[in-house]
């Protein structure tokens, strides 16, 4: 843990509980994927929770956030309702998108979460545009764009960095560097010194931190977000982390060096936060209770998701467009 942090144990404990909620959600999502209850693709955020929670603890409800395919953690951290998210994963009525989006299109606009995204780095360009709207509307908000390390080799990321800088936009880019893009080790396909160097080449301040250190993420983002609110223009945080699971739930991650994932457990954020909380006088029992509470909460959402109705077929034809809208059952 960071040596210079001054976090209140109560604040950290609350962040810890948020991390537990994300982890329980992701474990349940994976289990229900394997059980056949959740279809398509589920990209779990297990092992990376401290980044979303530490960053979002410093955001306001009205601040905006864009994410990528691994977006459950960002959504929960920003304040989206995990029950509605679980219903969405099950494709049911009451889901965040009414069952029309699923895991990769989780969104909750009521808390400024503008969507996970199935296309790598597309959130970057959406973010800078949202920030331009904020300036035009003279609003006091910022935009946070989460991106993975695989995304930094796409053009839209580099275009968006340039764009954010030339218009001095209130955007925080957060690269969650879990060091592997799907199954390919990122550094084998990335020239130069990597993401922070790329941002700096555009004149964007960039910092690399241990993303599994919740207190460090919290403190660093508190300072940087404050600067962005004060008009610093865009900044970038590269948060180093490790994906404890495969790229998606059905990926057994056989490309890992044997023993690598086991070794990484020592540095994973939930345990590290627990160790710190114990030094602050939080008891093992309190931690166990918090874990139980998160797991029970999510278990209930799974029960709710099983019980929720399937969407009506007619729902497939709504919210396409107003002008030239489709009619149910008409293909032309």
């Amino acid at each position: 843990m960071a040596q210079d942090q001054a976090n209140e144990p109560e604040r950290v404990f609350n962040m810890y509980k948020k991390m537990l909620l994300i982890r329980a959600f992701e474990e349940a999502a994976g289990e229900n994927f394997h059980a056949g209850n959740v279809r398509g693709s589920v990209h779990q955020y297990i092992g990376e929770e401290a980044i979303a929670v530490g960053i979002c603890a410093n955001l306001r409800k009205e601040d905006l956030l864009t994410s990528y395919h691994r977006g459950h953690g960002h959504s929960i951290a920003k304040g989206a309702d995990p029950r509605a998210m679980m219903l969405e994963l099950f494709g049911r009525v009451g889901g965040t998108s009414g069952g029309k989006g699923g895991s990769m299109h989780i969104a909750d606009f009521s808390v400024g979460m503008l969507g996970a995204n199935g296309v790598i780095a597309d959130g970057c360009t959406i973010s800078v545009g949202a920030a331009q709207a904020i300036k035009l509307l003279k609003q006091d908000k910022i935009v946070v764009n989460f991106i993975g390390d695989g995304g930094i080799n796409r053009g839209p990321f580099m275009e968006a960095l340039n764009w954010a800088k030339i218009y001095n936009l209130p955007v925080l880019f957060v690269c969650e560097n879990n060091q592997i893009a799907a199954t390919t080790t990122t550094k084998t396909v990335t020239a130069g010194e990597g993401i922070a160097a790329r941002a700096e080449s555009y004149g964007i301040p960039a910092i690399t931190i241990d993303g599994n250190d919740l207190l460090l993420v919290d403190n660093t983002s508190a300072r940087i977000i404050d600067e962005i609110r004060s008009g610093s223009g865009p900044q970038l945080i590269q948060a180093m982390t490790y994906r404890l699971r495969g790229h998606f739930a059905h990926d057994k991650a056989l490309y890992r060096i044997p023993g690598e994932a086991e070794a990484a457990l020592e540095f994973e954020p939930v345990r590290r936060t627990e160790s710190w909380l114990i030094t602050q006088g939080i008891s093992e029992e309190e931690l166990a209770n918090a874990r139980d509470e998160a797991e029970q909460t999510i278990s209930q959402y799974v029960v709710d998701a099983h019980a929720a109705p399937w969407p009506d077929i007619a729902d497939a034809f709504t919210d396409v467009q107003d002008v030239g809208a489709p009619q149910v059952g008409v293909n032309s």
Binding site: F109, T125, G129, A133, L136, E159, I166
Partner: peptide, 28 residues
């Protein structure tokens, strides 16, 4: 210049930024 914005030659971001700005309450 904030309403008639000269941009870099970045078509993906001209389009993507317009989308983000539309999602955030403007009509680009």
């Amino acid at each position: 210049a904030d309403r008639i914005v000269d941009t870099p030659i970045s078509e993906a971001t001209i389009m993507g930024a317009a989308i983000g700005a539309a999602l955030a309450g403007t009509r680009p």
